[in-house]
Simulated scan of single mutants.
Amino acid sequence: MRLNEVTFTDAVPVDGYGPGFFRVGGQPVEGAICLSAKGTQSWGGFDDAAMLLALADEIDVLFVGTGGEIAHLPGDLRSALEEAGIGVEVMNSPSACRTYNVLLSEGRRVAVAALPV
């Protein structure tokens, strides 16, 4: 089996997470986050659609982590994202972070917005 070292482009992967925080680039970040090629930003949760919509020209898929358990996105948020041409995948935050890291390592145009567990 051949193993290759994974390298990331401009965006930084999620290194880990725990109760109320994520670790990004070796640094703990408290609360909800949004990661993309623009960097790491605090995210205001489901009421903060503006931050996510600002990514429309830079990403193809947004992974939304809903915390420790999977939950539905508010209908108006999902509609706004889809109207902006952003593919939306909703899952619990650990799954969203793992999926984001894998696709990021493949050079895909992705972002993750996640609520802490």
Rank of each mutant, 00 (worst) to 15 (best):
E69P: 00
P13Y: 05
E58K: 11
A80E: 15
A96Q: 12
D10S: 13
V117C: 07
E69D: 06
E106Q: 15
F63C: 05
Q27P: 00
L103Y: 14
E83R: 14
D57N: 15
E83K: 14
P116V: 02
G65N: 06
V102A: 11
S79G: 05
A113Q: 07
S36F: 10
D57R: 15
A50F: 00
R2G: 01
D15C: 12
A111W: 09
D48E: 13
S105D: 09
P28L: 07
D57M: 11
G45M: 07
R78D: 15
G65Q: 08
V12L: 13
L62H: 09
D48Y: 00
A37L: 06
D76L: 06
V14D: 03
M1P: 12
N101S: 15
N92L: 06
R2Q: 08
P28D: 15
G16W: 01
V29H: 14
S79I: 03
M51H: 06
D48I: 05
S93M: 10
V112E: 12
L81C: 13
L53W: 05
D76R: 04
L52A: 09
A71N: 02
G45K: 04
I86T: 07
P94V: 04
P28Y: 06
L62S: 11
G16D: 13
I86D: 11
V90W: 06
P19M: 13
F46R: 04
Y17F: 15
Q27C: 00
A96W: 08
I70R: 03
V24C: 03
V24M: 03
A54F: 10
P74I: 02
L35P: 01
V112D: 11
T66A: 03
E5G: 11
I86K: 09
D10R: 14
G68K: 00
Y17K: 01
R109D: 09
V112M: 07
G85L: 09
C97P: 09
A96P: 07
A96N: 10
V24A: 05
A49V: 08
G39C: 06
N4H: 14
Y100W: 12
A114K: 04
L81K: 10
V14P: 00
T66K: 01
D60I: 02
P19Q: 11
A11K: 03
F21G: 00
M91W: 12
R78N: 14
T40E: 10
D15K: 08
D57L: 11
S79P: 00
L104R: 10
L77R: 04
G85N: 14
Y100L: 05
D10W: 03
N92Y: 08
G87W: 01
G25H: 10
R23W: 06
G68W: 03
V110Q: 01
I70D: 05
E30G: 00
L55A: 12
G65T: 04
S36L: 10
P13C: 13
